Amino acid sequence: MEFDNETALQGFAESVAPHLVGGDVLLLDGDLGAGKTSFTKGLARGLGITDYIKSPTFTLIREYPAGRLPLYHMDLYRLEGGGAGDLGLEEYFEGDGVSVVEWPDYLGEAMPESYLLIHFIKDDFDDNKRTLTFEAEGSRAKALLEALPIQ
């Protein structure tokens, strides 16, 4: 899917939110500035969360409990050398909320069994344009992918 601007990307993310259930895990993969946190802002809005959403780069995890489902926003960029397995992330992944993980390559052994991986690709010529591709692992993630408005 292609998006010409941040507003369109956030609008799409907002349309994903009604399809989410507790325990869903979204892994967001892409370069710095590719739109991962922007997507999360739209997702939060779709979940009814009115808090200001910002990247948890320095805190690793930000929790937003005040929506239809809790949102657990994780940014593992600072764990480039490893260590995600020591954070107890499985409690989030198996919990009652939605987990959004930026930089999932650093999950290592903490990788959940079921997840929807979203690749964010910045356009080389238009800094506002993004392309998203999707991969689902596990039966719940495959069902989620089929339900999304990506046609």
Rank of each mutant, 00 (worst) to 15 (best):
I49L: 15
F12D: 04
D4R: 08
S15D: 04
L107V: 01
F58M: 03
L32A: 02
P18K: 09
Q10I: 06
T57G: 04
K129C: 04
A44N: 06
E6R: 12
V25F: 07
I118P: 08
R78Q: 07
D24Q: 09
I53Y: 13
P65C: 09
G22H: 13
A44K: 05
G67E: 11
L28D: 05
K36E: 08
Y72C: 09
P18L: 09
S15C: 02
Y92Q: 10
E135T: 09
Y52G: 13
L144D: 08
G33C: 05
E137Y: 14
T50W: 14
T7C: 12
H19L: 14
M111P: 02
S139K: 09
D31C: 03
E113V: 02
S38W: 09
T57F: 06
F120M: 15
E146W: 07
S114K: 02
R140S: 07
I53L: 12
G88W: 01
T133H: 07
A143G: 10
A13H: 06
V101G: 00
K54Q: 09
G23I: 09
I49F: 14
T133A: 11
H19K: 09
R78K: 07
A84Y: 01
E63Q: 14
S15F: 07
F3T: 06
P149C: 01
G35I: 08
L43V: 10
I150N: 10
E63T: 13
A17E: 12
G138Y: 02
V16I: 12
G42C: 11
T7A: 15
Q151E: 10
L87D: 06
E14Q: 15
F125K: 01
G30F: 08
M1S: 09
Q10Y: 13
D31I: 06
D29V: 13
L71F: 12
P18V: 07
A17K: 13
